[in-house]
Design a protein around this nucleic acid. Structure first.
Lengths: 332, 332
DNA sequence: TTGAAAGCGGTACCAT
DNA sequence: ATGGTACCGCTTTCAA
């Protein structure tokens, strides 16, 4: 690979001059500029990013830390981030943490050693991260800590989502509700749950709470089996996310339960496959791709030290009506 | 962040000595070694990877180029790659190319500017990539060019997969087959198709070929609608991948077609959600995660200049019998 | 308008 | 066994 020195020699100028035309800083005569540009072209010169990073003590890399890209929720998030930063000339260095604090810290460390300009992290434990004294901007994605921390973060309105799920369910007249509570350590899961509770506890329905420790299909399927044995009369299930909802739907169909006539089901997230199911899953949508983009935008502002109106951005959720819920009666 | 100089001062030695203990090269007295290590600890020193990269003209980063992480096929691939390289102290710089040659070349360029040690690429156009004179090892993943190129690559045995799909279908007595042909520009899609053709053309069945230009659910759904109108009697469909199969299943169920009794369906890939469907999808499995790992292993060998027995590794596919195919009659 | 040179944080060669 | 120093490729200050 040609270096700046090669260009300088070819153009018969000093490296300083080449650097000047490269960065369009300082004065440089039109003619020499032309010569330099020509030399760069013929040598197919590209500046070495590593050398630049070293000088600036900062690369054009952004660290992205996700629990597990294999979980269908995350690819869209990643894509949103990538699309946004790519436009601004940044690249992604990416890692899976498996929700393992040690791995997270290890990644944060190597991000730092690579002089990333900033990081976007979907971690359960923002505090631990913050206490690392990263000395670089970081924005938390999706899984955020307590509200009052005022740490830069973007997330969806989970509580509203939970409320929405429950009230849409109420509108459609299910009376014996099962509410699935997701993993206790996830803030978003708790919020969804509490949101649903807000509505259910003051509604005229029976309800039953069931907890899953993970968001895995296998566990959810297990729990679904139990559920239909223990509480066969349930006629409305609010799942903690779409994977869990999928497992429940799977089990219900297996048992010949009619969906949505005998059992209504609402998921959460709106991952891509939800609409591919049959019947397609009604769910609470999080604008995942947009969340990724917003996180990237926020980070970019932080990096450029721009004015930030609000460092926590909360995106709205919406009810996606598909076919695991009944049509609502417009005449009531 | 503390630098090597800080450590040197704290330990009252030269930077050369610190470098020696850091890299365990050359002689250094036990006592001074202890002092240096202590200084590193108290300063919480981590070597600057960027400076190292500059000196070595090589970073500890590996470039991963995928068409679109949002396509459910790729996250597992990415995970396989990441898990393997992470073990060896490498990190991933990651990009989506959208099967767009320009974006691909752009990424390759920036990978190079960041002095990655090697790249793993799932591209349709290995030739174009190769012609870039990357001057670094690259292994192609999944979507490879012609066999005889002998370019390092890992992929599954698509042709065998196609044959397997067709013969399993034959075993189960479907007689009016629809064979879906995937995007013409994808080598793997062609191979699957030809594999199925190998079997079908010499079997005692009618068959019908239908082409999709993409692997998108939307397009497949459209085509599925057409299919059931044009060829309502089809009783066995071999799809070009699981997404297409999902769309077909969706449409079949919508029309009240009994699966698998009236219509059997076999997908390709075995992406995670295939087993979440109801009925769960019978499919030809590609060991995707392993493919990612193998690609990483191959690249690592290339990087270390180790002896390579075979630079193209082909992984076996297998038939995953689930419930969109009938149980095969053991008494025949 | 241009060039020389110091410095970014490491590594490794050459002395001592 | 240890230290001095040139160098990796680039940017920027200072002087000319």
């Amino acid at each position: 690979m040609a270096t700046i020195k090669d260009v300088a020699i070819a153009a018969k100028v000093s490296v300083a001059t080449v650097s000047r035309v490269l960065n369009e800083t300082g004065y440089v005569h039109e003619d020499t500029k032309t010569r330099v540009i020509k030399a760069m072209k013929t040598l197919n010169y590209r500046p070495n990013e590593v050398a630049r990073s070293l000088y600036h003590r900062e690369s054009r890399l952004i660290g992205l830390l996700l629990p597990d890209i294999t979980n269908p929720f995350f690819p869209q998030l990643a894509r949103g981030v990538e699309d946004e930063i790519h436009q601004h000339g940044f690249r992604l260095i990416f890692g899976n943490s498996d929700e393992n604090l040690e791995k997270e810290l290890d990644y944060l460390q190597t991000f730092k050693q690579n002089q990333v300009v900033g990081v976007i992290s979907a971690t359960n434990d923002p505090e631990a991260t913050i206490n690392q004294d990263l000395s670089m901007p970081i924005v938390f994605l999706d899984r955020t800590g307590d509200e009052d921390e005022h740490v830069p973060s973007v997330f969806a309105d989970s509580r509203k989502g939970g409320q929405l799920a429950a009230s849409e369910m109420m509108k459609r007249n299910s009376k014996r509700i099962t509410l699935i509570k997701g993993p206790a350590h996830l803030r978003t899961a708790k919020d969804r749950f509490n949101g649903a509770l807000d509505i259910l506890s003051s509604a005229d329905v029976d309800f039953h709470v069931l907890t899953t420790e993970t968001f895995s299909f296998q566990e959810a399927q297990q729990r679904a089996e139990d559920l239909f044995s223990i509480y066969p009369k349930t006629d409305g299930i609010i799942a903690s996310n779409d994977i869990v909802a999928t497992a429940i739907l799977h089990e219900a169909l297996k048992r010949g339960i009619q969906v949505p006539s005998d059992l209504q089901l609402i998921g959460f997230d709106d991952i891509p496959h939800s609409e591919w199911l049959f019947p397609p899953l009604s769910t609470i949508r999080q604008p995942v791709y947009e969340m990724g983009k917003e996180a990237a935008k926020l980070l970019l502002k932080l990096i450029k030290n721009e004015y930030i109106e609000k460092s926590t951005v909360q995106l709205p959720v919406s009810f996606i009506e598909r076919q695991t819920t009944r049509k609502v009666d417009n005449n009531e």
